[in-house]
């Protein structure tokens, strides 16, 4: 299928380039000769390093995405954001409480949120950022943890918040509070830790460690397998 590759017009920091269609913003930058240092991380949509802002030649409305995941489009104006400053509260997790008051103590500016919803419109993960900010205001830590779970901490919400709030750090605090204090504990994990403490498995592990390879292979082949689901 040797079809002619269609070329797309894009503008990197205002300068015009033509690139083959189907590239992502990141690979388009590389095609144009840019070698990334900042603004590039896992290249798979998980790390949030490549937060990007773009609009179109005849459409000034700003859009937001991850450069490694977003396919280029005709007449796109684009740039990478190397760094954006953001406030992070320092705290000792062992000395804080899982309450709404605690969240407000660490992030008092939270009350300045006036619900403009810019953060939600900005989120490349399409999370309901404004809603979890209002959950945080109400002290519903569990709901913040739930709604913000897929956050890659790219920082775009903080970059765009007119009040200078940092939703992704507030969400991280809430998730840590939830995991540490509010999630129900796992009895079987505690039991197993106690068993390990008493040396329950030591003899069997020692035996396996010293077992001949033939015998180990047999043991492996004969092991019973729990159904996957």
């Amino acid at each position: 299928m040797a079809e002619q590759v269609r070329m797309v017009d894009i503008y990197i920091m205002g300068r015009h380039y033509q690139v083959p269609e189907g590239l992502t913003i990141m690979t388009a930058l590389e095609y144009c000769g840019y070698r990334m240092i900042r603004g590039c991380g896992c290249r798979a949509g998980f790390c949030g390093a490549c937060a990007t802002v773009f609009n179109f030649k005849n459409d000034p409305q700003l859009r937001y995405d991850l450069a490694c995941q977003k396919t280029i489009e005709q007449d796109m104006y684009l740039v990478q954001i190397p760094f954006f400053p953001s406030a992070k509260a320092l705290y000792n997790l062992e000395e804080v409480e899982a309450t709404g008051e605690q969240v407000l103590t660490l992030y008092p500016d939270l009350v300045k949120c006036f619900g403009c919803n810019t953060c939600t419109k900005t989120c490349p993960q399409e999370l309901e950022v404004m809603w979890f900010m209002s959950d945080a205001l109400r002290g519903d830590i569990r709901e913040v943890a739930n709604k913000s779970f897929d956050c890659v901490m790219c920082g775009l919400c903080a970059a765009r918040c007119p009040q200078g709030l940092v939703p992704y750090n507030i969400a991280l605090l809430c998730r840590r509070l939830y995991g540490r204090y509010l999630a129900p504990t796992s009895k079987h994990l505690e039991d197993r830790l106690a068993e390990i403490e008493t040396g329950k498995f030591d003899a069997e592990l020692e035996e396996l460690k010293n077992m001949s390879q033939d015998k180990l292979r047999r043991r492996y082949a004969e092991r019973d397998i729990e159904p996957a689901y």
């Binding site: 998730r175 999630a183 129900p184």
Partner: peptide, 11 residues
């Protein structure tokens, strides 16, 4: 440290 593991309702 605050990691949120997937859990069943009983923990």
């Amino acid at each position: 440290l605050g990691v949120n593991w997937d859990k069943n309702p009983d923990g």
